[in-house]
């Protein structure tokens, strides 16, 4: 009984006052306050924040591509072929990142190319995630034979040589953005199913789910009202990670000539176009590749932050280090506290 009021206890005096603003913010249930709290938390994780900013910029770039891009990405000009970027000897400010072998402005192509990456990424994550989560929920919730059948099916599909099969489908149906989305979704839903099932199985044993069932909640009600909200954060993290994988996969397929087809623009396609000019124009391959790498890195950084933030154990660890750092700072700055302790 004395323990909580013991002010000299290391956790007793310092932890609450560090915690206070955070708790207050979490008590406000308005979405604005929640978003603000989340943003301030993001601010404290510098790499994650950088990733977040880059992603926001990319999304804006993709949405407003026609307004931002200085040229039409498909506009060819024979006189302006293979101009290097501006910092190179022959570079001009008219084409900041140079032009390709057909005289198309690379900056405009990069800006427009971001659209494809974003659309494919979002569509695949939504399709694969939706289907996979549904399958996982069904398998985990109903259990028994349904579970065994679904998971057997998932095991079989996972053992398929996925990318090769994707190549066959693309070769037969003919490459286009829709086929790329379908093929990548077919290839990626199993991860969500496995993860969802795993979480459902562990959550099902929890007293609150049992209580909901005992009270007479119907299965759909229990699944959507009680189980689904508890898996949001791990699933979101998985979704973000998958998004990064999809951006890379779309680029690879387009590079092989089995993804986005010209006259549409895609970063992978641009790298493939520049491949034949490796010896004379390095920027054709390097710049679109950089765009892909920066995008994927930003997504990975954000996913890393999301993983740490949504994991209570990791949060505790992080909180402990920040408290320790505070204490060290306090100790060195004010001898009074040192004396008191």
């Amino acid at each position: 009984m004395e323990y909580p009021s013991d002010s000299t206890h290391p956790d007793g005096d310092e932890a609450p006052d560090l915690n206070a603003p955070q708790i207050q913010e979490e008590e406000k249930t308005s979405t604005f306050a929640k978003a603000k709290a989340l943003l301030s938390e993001l601010w404290h994780d510098k790499p994650g924040f950088v990733g977040f900013v880059i992603i926001v910029a990319l999304v804006l770039m993709a949405i407003f591509a026609p307004l931002i891009a200085p040229y039409d990405p498909a506009e060819q000009s024979l006189r302006a072929r293979l101009i290097p970027p501006v910092w190179q000897e022959r570079g001009t400010w008219e084409h900041v990142l140079g032009t390709d072998h057909l005289g198309r402005d690379i900056l405009s192509r990069i800006i427009h190319g971001s659209r494809i990456s974003m659309i494919v990424g979002v569509a695949v994550v939504a399709l694969a995630g939706g289907f996979g989560i549904t399958m996982g929920l069904i398998a985990g919730f109903f259990g028994g034979r349904i579970d065994a059948a679904i998971m057997r099916f998932v095991d079989t599909i996972i053992a398929f040589p996925g990318l090769l099969l994707a190549l066959v489908i693309l070769a037969v149906i003919g490459p286009s953005m829709t086929t790329v989305i379908i093929v990548l979704a077919l290839n990626g839903w199993m991860v969500y199913a496995r993860m969802t099932r795993g979480i459902v199985l562990s959550v099902r044993q929890m007293p609150y789910v049992e209580a909901a069932e005992m009270v007479g909640g119907r299965s759909f009600h229990v699944i959507f009202r009680h189980i689904l909200p508890n898996m949001m954060s791990p699933l979101l993290t998985l979704g973000v990670l998958e998004f990064a994988r999809i951006v890379l996969a779309e680029a690879a397929l387009s590079f092989l000539g089995l993804g986005i087809q010209p006259p549409a623009t895609s970063w992978g396609l641009d790298v493939a176009n520049g491949k034949d000019y490796l010896f004379v124009a390095w920027w054709l391959v390097t710049i679109p590749g950089c765009a892909i790498a920066i995008t994927v890195l930003a997504i990975n950084l954000l996913a890393n932050w999301a993983r740490v933030t949504s994991d209570p154990q990791e949060r505790e660890k992080r909180f402990a280090t920040s408290v320790a750092a505070m204490r060290r700072r306090k100790k060195s700055s004010s001898p009074a506290i040192q004396a008191a302790e």
């Binding site: 990064a244 890379l248 680029a251 690879a252 590079f255 992978g268 790298v271 491949k275 490796l278 010896f279 390095w282 391959v285 390097t286 590749g289 892909i292 790498a293 920066i294 994927v296 890195l297 990975n300 950084l301 890393n304």
Partner: peptide
């Protein structure tokens, strides 16, 4: 690791060619 994981493989190959071959 985080950086290397973000680089598209085909592009990495082309960069290697540019640096070590060209």
């Amino acid at each position: 690791s985080l950086g290397a994981l973000s680089v598209p493989q085909f592009w990495l190959g082309l960069l290697f060619i540019m640096v070590f071959a060209v």
